[in-house]
Design a protein around this nucleic acid. Sequence first.
DNA 1: ATGAAAGCGCTAACAC
DNA 2: GTGTTAGCGCTTTCAT
Lengths: 363, 363
Amino acid sequence: MRRGATNAAQTGAPTSADVARLAGVSPATISLVLNGRASKVRISDETRDKVIAAAAQLGYTPNHAARSLRQRRTNIITFVLPTLDNPYFSDVVRAAQTAAQQHGYAVSVIPAKTKPGEFHALSFLQGAAFDGIIVAGRENCTAPELRQLAARGVAVVALQEQSPDPSIQSVSVDLEAGGYMATRHLIDLGHRRIAHVTERLHEPGTRRDRLDGYRRALEEAGLAFDPSLVLTAENTMAGGSKAIEQLLGPGMQRPTAAFMYNDQMAVGALHALRLHGLSVPDDFAIVGFDGVAIGQFTAPALTTIDHPREELGRLAIEALIGALEKRPSDVREHLLPVKLIVRESCGGGKTLLPRRQPRTRTR
Amino acid sequence: MRRGATNAAQTGAPTSADVARLAGVSPATISLVLNGRASKVRISDETRDKVIAAAAQLGYTPNHAARSLRQRRTNIITFVLPTLDNPYFSDVVRAAQTAAQQHGYAVSVIPAKTKPGEFHALSFLQGAAFDGIIVAGRENCTAPELRQLAARGVAVVALQEQSPDPSIQSVSVDLEAGGYMATRHLIDLGHRRIAHVTERLHEPGTRRDRLDGYRRALEEAGLAFDPSLVLTAENTMAGGSKAIEQLLGPGMQRPTAAFMYNDQMAVGALHALRLHGLSVPDDFAIVGFDGVAIGQFTAPALTTIDHPREELGRLAIEALIGALEKRPSDVREHLLPVKLIVRESCGGGKTLLPRRQPRTRTR
DNA sequence: ATGAAAGCGCTAACAC
DNA sequence: GTGTTAGCGCTTTCAT
């Protein structure tokens, strides 16, 4: 039996044909009107109003899959994050979402931690239910799947990593400068044994990093680089705490300060120091990295390196949409500046004058 | 000119027809093999291998839009969160993702804060690029769009809220019990003026809440409910901080303890108390709510009400997939228990015995 | 100014 | 066992 009946009975959702029938026009007209192409003087006001009324009456919404199939685009941009734990990305994604919406794109987030050895978490993305993808996390950024996606025409932007593939853009903050500023701040405050706690990563980085800045600052001050002062730990508060435990353990020639991978790990560090009865900043100084909200609420408040997180998100979206809409850009890599925020965890920010101001933006 | 040429040239992605041509079979066979329906003795091993080889050679991946259109399903479940800020959801989503993957679904997250008055942030979801949706946040849960989605056949699960629509399931933790336990704990510790700081929400709740538990505990202890002790604030650390400021302001008959909406706001509370030179727990006690990681790292560590966040995520997915696959369930609402975790922010958890143990799970 | 028709890439029914 | 065919719901020439 041929069924001319409305599809709504089967799926619960009215189709453009349903609307067309109700309005007494063809499906093509529905499309024209609802996509605003009616403005090109093509559809009469009368028809337009009929269509809009019919669509409203039926509660019609275009089928996403059909539209994507036909147009070869989804208007969705996906953000791949290693974890939802870190409020850092919350700020980045929020700004990205705002920017994306202005261009007619929706943003969705997929938490995916690519584990070394295991199959890459990104493989399921191949279906490409999105037009573009912004990837954070070193392991995710270096996944071979990304290059495949790029080869298929999906626009790809890597956060904080540089890809050998020229079609993959990157948007980053200047981690090296941040590492330098953090370490330099501690040196200026008189510290000579300065530890650096970093994230345990299983892929080699592609860009100059916190550690490079740390080394540059030491070198500049004529301090020897001591590998035993560089620890890796899990990127969590507990990880930061453990690293400090280790630093304070027996047999260690204790540092007097630590530059932590991020504010989250710095919170853990403060905790460990407290447990050891050490006062911050009097007995031990801590510098964080990121500038996320929590740093203002710790005791003591965190001195940290602030990232322009909103700008990072906005820029990532703009780079992505540029690529998507084939506006060729000569800029393959965007590098954003960071700035030192002096709070309490290193002490006397206001009394001791730094010898010179590292490059930074000031409000 | 008719083009029989491979589509790969146009989009960068090979189609099933391309694979079929290379393997010397029909597109239907490709589908059969690649979807594992070959196991039904229908395809010869030889053909199967040819197909697999051809697909691998081309790097073929099925087009998501086409497949969704044909099958009327996407295998994607979307999580709508009011914000990515709160690590609470990080735990929930992680567990949900694990559970979903076991059933062959991918999870994506959309941060959407429905603002009262403004148009509902969920409206853009109408396209339904997903099979089911799990919604958190009161404003999101009460959005009329949800009922439309449900009517269209999208499975919907609300977190912490009950919908009048019977097709919308709910998965919640027992907030009322948590409120009771938190308040009761403070009462048992000798507090008589106990404040409650809650989130500023613009929609009426649909379920018994922290506040109800708070009132029940007061009542049971013969303490009068004092509306001036119940404050609303923004659900952030800063919001918690401000609320406490207000409580300590001039002209206030100060409480000696506060039960905070969640751990995040409790962190802000600790900060404000510190600024006022009050010692926690000696001068003022704080109970949090949630049990997120940060509570272990504050000074003092937070006494809190722990939620089974993993179970919440897992259950939400299972309820959703049950609905999706039309396994009818008589359970429309799932209620999960909470438990008190005594740390430092209320003092003497170990010395003072609660008069009776509220219902809770113990590990 | 509008309609007819083709087709995006896939899969489910039905032939053979 | 495998190929043929139809069609999911939409948009987009092209005709009228």
